[in-house]
């Protein structure tokens, strides 16, 4: 059986990469295939990598407050490139009303600081759009 492939990405200028790195490693140890982009990625970079790596999930980590713009751009480019079966999730410093807006726009979930990693991995397994 093919392992679920996850892209963990840091959009924009934000340098806070602690959460992204910890999550990438923990998901790998839970049996996922994980690709981590590093920091300072544009939406174009992220979607291109997602296509090249044929991932099932994109996880955006953002703590800089610029989440509305970057999530929207990634969603737009995912649609444009037909990545309808790729699950988009996120995490970081995101106020509640923005979380709701992003969920309405098509982000499957935004995880708050303090979320246990197994909650994230269970969410991915349950909500994955592609058959694995």
């Amino acid at each position: 059986m093919r392992k679920i492939r996850i892209l963990i990405a840091k959009p924009g200028l934000d340098g806070h990469d602690r959460g992204a790195k910890v999550l990438a490693r923990a998901l790998m140890e839970e049996g996922f295939e994980v690709i981590y982009t590093g920091i300072h990625q544009t939406a174009e970079d992220i979607v291109r990598t997602a296509i090249e790596e044929d991932v099932d999930v994109i996880g955006l980590s953002i703590l800089s407050g610029a989440h509305m713009y970057h999530f929207t751009r990634v969603l737009e480019l995912m649609k444009k490139n037909g990545l309808n079966d790729v699950l988009l999730i996120g995490g970081g410093i995101v106020p509640n009303d923005d979380r709701e807006k992003l969920r309405d726009m098509g982000v499957a979930e935004i995880f708050m600081p303090g979320t246990p990693i197994n909650e994230i991995s269970e969410f991915i397994r349950k909500n994955i759009k592609r058959p694995s």
């Binding site: 924009g12 200028l13 713009y69």
Partner: peptide, 9 residues
Amino acid sequence: LSKGEFGKA
């Protein structure tokens, strides 16, 4: 490159 980041952090 500054798009979306103005005044946020």
